[in-house]
């Protein structure tokens, strides 16, 4: 069974972004970039499936600029077998990403695609679901626990009210939530080995997908800023203040 893991190169989660003065976007110059944290969780889960003998091959796919190959290398160093880089500069919307992934799935015929539940830059939370719909496959979003069965998988999901388990027929798409696993760090020998693993380079045109954004970003602005308020000295003073302003 093949597993495909789409990995996105995003601004590191520790970086606080700054909006550009001309409101055209956020400043990404010289900012630290990393693999989307949810995608690390996806890679980890895929590798565990391979270690348990459930998966035969793990393929990491990234759609983005040349530097996205570094993100694929990270996945390879963690234990993925090979990579596919679909090269494009500029913004790619989830629907276009999903269309490219669909074409890759049709060629590679995986039994499972594991995406992150959201990318921490755009927070769209769409790609996996869109891919599943385009392929006519079932999905299990916000995965908390995966149990592989015969031609099916039971997946426990994090939902607003608690946890929910769904059963999906394979092939399927799963999107990962924070507590599915704790991703490993790549060891030095594995980082070296990863350098020799193959990465195929493609373009969206190879898959016949037009990636021109459909949404027009008119401007990007700063949210209203909160001012730090006052310090109180005691719990009593806190309660009194809250009472005074009618908050309790």
């Amino acid at each position: 069974m093949k597993v495909i893991v789409p990995v996105k190169r995003v601004i590191d989660y520790n970086v606080k972004v700054r909006v550009k003065a001309d409101q055209s976007g956020v400043d990404l110059a010289n900012v630290k970039m990393s693999m989307n944290p949810f995608d690390e969780i996806s890679v980890e889960e895929a590798i565990r499936l391979k270690e348990k003998g459930k998966a035969t091959e793990v393929i990491a796919v990234s759609i983005g600029p040349q530097q996205a190959s570094e993100t694929i290398r990270t996945a390879l160093a963690m234990g993925a077998d090979r990579g596919i880089l679909v090269k494009t500069d500029g913004e790619v919307e989830p629907l276009a990403v999903a269309k490219i992934l669909k074409a890759i799935c049709e060629a590679e015929k995986p039994e499972l695609v594991i995406t992150g539940k959201q990318a921490i830059d755009d927070d769209s939370n769409q790609t996996g679901q869109m891919l599943a719909a385009l392929l006519g496959w079932p999905q299990a979003t916000f995965a908390h626990k995966l149990e592989m069965g015969d031609g099916k998988a039971d997946i426990e999901r994090e939902i607003d009210g608690g946890l929910q388990t769904v059963e999906v027929k394979l092939p399927a798409v799963m999107t990962t939530d924070l507590r599915l696993n704790e991703p490993r760090y790549a060891s030095l020998p594995n980082i070296m080995k990863a350098k020799k693993k193959p990465i195929d380079e493609k373009t969206p045109a190879d898959y016949g997908v037009d990636v021109t954004p459909r949404l027009k970003t008119l401007k990007v602005t700063e949210p209203p800023k909160r001012q730090a308020g006052i310090k109180v000295k005691t719990a009593k003073e806190l309660v009194d203040k809250l009472k005074e302003v009618g908050a309790i």
Partner: peptide, 15 residues
């Protein structure tokens, strides 16, 4: 809509 954990607000126009 918020992007980057709400540290920026994008104004987007739908097709």
């Amino acid at each position: 809509r918020p992007i980057y954990a709400g540290n920026a607000i994008a104004t987007v126009q739908a097709p």
